[in-house]
Simulated assay, not measured.
Amino acid sequence: MATSLTALRRQIGSAGDLKSVVRTMKASAASAIGQYERSVAALADYAHTVELGLSVCLRSIAAEGAPAPSPPARADDAVVHAIVFGSDQGLVGRFNEVVVEHALAQLAPAKPTLKVWAVGERVQARLVDAGLTPESVFLVPGSVELITRLVGQLLLKVQLPDSAASAYAQEATLMLFYNRPNAGGYAPVSQRLLPLDGSWQRRLATQPWPTAQLPEVLGHSRQALSAFIREHLFVSLFRACAESLASENASRLAAMQRADRNIGELLQELQANFHQLRQAGIDEELFDVIAGFDALAPSDAATP
């Protein structure tokens, strides 16, 4: 009896400690979600500024009579660079599986020559299991401040046909795969950064300027366009990474909420068993006392 009570007391203590850890991880995940969502919202203004700069450059090139960059017809053997954002840590449910399945579904029909780049050790393992060996693996940044470093590493490491942005905007294919937060948690999305979408360029070139003072491009329009395309790549990669991190923490928060609920139910069951076993021990001792009293009662009555 004592051994069983001791074992139950130890299990209750371990479950209580685990519940404290889970609650700490819940608080950390909830805090991180807000941090990354705020960074995405703050990036929206800068992204809009970059689009305005692109629109000015495209209009200037059109005014010069030069054709705007347009995506060429893709050859069957063209190399597609795919960056897949996942996680380094576990306890995120099917976060990595979902984004890998989405990437495979998007890339499989065309059957291109692929070069895959993984952000996160966990998603790397899923890609290898699916038959895709990443060219390189990058660590997932642990804060908003480290996202900029990751984006710089990606732009340097992912070797594209030409270092000039205006050139590889037409020749290379660069796709992003990541999870984006939504009302239900997150959903996998894909984004083609290069070649630049033709309809998107036409929309930028024709959109009205927000003020009455029309801007002018100083210097060569192509060089300015190249610089703005690099900024467009930076903004898109930064946003993809931040949204992936927000989704990862949302998935971890949901997993921790389920774990917290399961541990709470387990604690209730263990405590009920503990009290039941303890009460059974008390009842057994009382029965022993009563039985001893009943055994001694006849001899006491026979004494003169």
Rank of each mutant, 00 (worst) to 15 (best):
M1C: 09
A2P: 02
L5M: 12
A7I: 11
L8N: 07
R10Q: 15
R10G: 04
G13E: 13
G16I: 00
D17Y: 14
A27G: 02
S28Q: 14
Q35F: 00
E37G: 00
R38M: 03
S39P: 00
L43N: 07
L43Q: 09
V50S: 02
L54F: 08
V56E: 10
A63Q: 12
G65L: 07
P69F: 05
P72E: 14
R74E: 13
D76P: 02
V84L: 08
S87D: 06
N96M: 06
L104S: 08
Q106G: 01
A108R: 12
A110S: 15
T113F: 07
V119E: 01
E121M: 04
E121I: 03
P134I: 02
E135W: 00
F138K: 02
L139D: 12
S143D: 15
V144E: 14
V151R: 04
L156I: 09
Y168M: 11
Y168L: 06
A172E: 03
T173V: 15
R180T: 11
P181N: 05
G185K: 02
P188G: 06
W200E: 07
Q201Y: 02
L204M: 09
Q207L: 13
Q213V: 15
S226Y: 06
F228I: 03
S247E: 06
S247T: 07
A250F: 01
A254D: 08
R261V: 07
R261E: 12
R261G: 07
E265G: 03
L266W: 06
N273H: 14
F274E: 13
R278H: 15
G281S: 15
I282N: 04
F287W: 11
D288N: 11
D288M: 10
G292C: 08
A295E: 13
